[in-house]
């Protein structure tokens, strides 16, 4: 079975993608999206595409999950504006 690495990379990426789609909580989904980015980068390297793996690494590990987490933080803080702690302003 000569294409074993590609097969395993494919199964890992599909499982990670399914997990990322079906994780309902956005914070948890951001972390699973980060793992999906890793799985895709591995799959692309096994499919002999290092350039695409590089761009997926740069996007998938830091950029996209970070923006999702920042959006969650902004959206989550909004409904709690009546809590007394809100008056002291933003976090670090």
């Amino acid at each position: 079975m000569t294409e074993l690495p590609v097969l395993l990379g494919l199964l890992l990426a599909t499982t990670a993608g399914t997990a990322a789609a079906l994780t309902r909580d956005p914070v948890h989904q951001a972390l699973v999206l980060s793992v999906l980015g890793l799985a895709l980068a591995l799959l692309f390297t096994l499919l002999q595409a290092p350039d695409v793996a590089l761009s997926q690494l740069a996007v998938g590990t830091v950029l996209t999950p970070l923006m999702v987490l920042l959006s969650v933080r902004k959206v989550r803080r909004r409904p709690r504006e009546d809590s007394p702690a809100d008056g002291r302003g933003g976090k670090r």
């Binding site: 690495p5 395993l8 990379g9 890992l12 499982t15 990670a16 997990a19 994780t23 948890h28 972390l31 699973v32 980060s34 793992v35 890793l38 799985a39 591995l42």
Partner: peptide
């Protein structure tokens, strides 16, 4: 891939 990343994905879920 099988012994490391599989469980790591499960741990992340």
């Amino acid at each position: 891939l099988v012994l490391g990343l599989g469980p790591a994905l499960c741990g992340a879920v």
